[in-house]
Design a protein around this nucleic acid. Sequence first.
DNA 1: GAATTGACATACGGAGCGTATGCATGTTCA
DNA 2: TGAACATGCATACGCTCCGTATGTCAATTC
Lengths: 195, 195
Amino acid sequence: MAGRRAQMMEETKAKLVRAARQAFAETGFADASMDELTAGAGLTRGALYHHFGDKKGLLQAVIAQIDGEMAARLAVVGERAETPWRGLLDEYRAYLEMALEPEIQRILLLDGPAVLGDPSRWPTQNACLAETTRRIRALVADGAIPPVDPEAAARLLNGASLHAALWVAASDEPEAVLAKALDAFRRLAEGLVRA
Amino acid sequence: MAGRRAQMMEETKAKLVRAARQAFAETGFADASMDELTAGAGLTRGALYHHFGDKKGLLQAVIAQIDGEMAARLAVVGERAETPWRGLLDEYRAYLEMALEPEIQRILLLDGPAVLGDPSRWPTQNACLAETTRRIRALVADGAIPPVDPEAAARLLNGASLHAALWVAASDEPEAVLAKALDAFRRLAEGLVRA
DNA sequence: GAATTGACATACGGAGCGTATGCATGTTCA
DNA sequence: TGAACATGCATACGCTCCGTATGTCAATTC
């Protein structure tokens, strides 16, 4: 049976992840206090260290959750497009828009790499990157674009999008900068298409 | 007169920056102890807070130094090339190689953005980005590539290079991965050339 | 040569993390 | 069913570390 006990435990973990997600997004990982965070969830640091080991462990859990959500959103966008190529472009547009969300930017793009190192080494295997890699692989297989290492292309495009997002977010005139970034991005992406 | 006093002061600051650079590179910003760091330079935290205000101030000084060095190296590489377009590609190859150096990767690419936010907002105006932007602007002005916002293109390419470097650095077989990354990068960059 | 400035050291307070310990509830098994 | 055991979580403690306030001594100024 599921067990009332195990269910409570999952609820506790969920509460902690929820509180951490908010705290990390608002304050940043380094300045987030574990005491405040857990108190906000009606718990103490005891629960935290019991379930997640340490502060970094909690960050990993938060990142895994966000990464999963992002991958799901990307897959939907990519599936909806008329052609696979449009699907890829739409996915990256969506990726850039997500990277503009403060929560994602702060936790996944800034603190994540600094605290846990390169994303590809994270225990939770970057579902988001896997999604775009998969799509590029399909394009190559269909002959829609000349052969290229799918993971390499995906990583470079992700990196470009990420930086574009940081730029747009820090800008004084986000709309104008976003337009420039999207234009330049399309130019780069079309480099994959040329013979 | 120059003043023996002022000279000593510069030497002190230089010693602190040097020690910080090493400590940040080895331990990472968050885990670097100011006590140990300053003691290693034969000083105390007093000197540090007197000259740099706080821990972040010291990081800014370190980053400014590294950024300046990188920009200088890039300029040399770009100047040496036979055509402006080759110059740009060479610069990015050099950028990627620099991003593979642990010190640069740790301090400038991981901790820097996490602690200080988007690089474009740093007091020390990203000399490195300015260099690549300048070169792309020249290419557009010469008609070598179709019009594109130079800063946007530079930022996207920098972002792509940076991610490629993280990937290569974390890889088990760096040479193979580096080759893939460079190939994919060339493909993207050539997107700027198409009509 | 007295006064002032500034470079740097020392001393102090507060906050935060991780661990060791305690408790109370749920589970297992004779 | 009740006693032994395991586990989710709280409490208590020590340690490290940052930032500031205060002190000191040399150098410069007049």
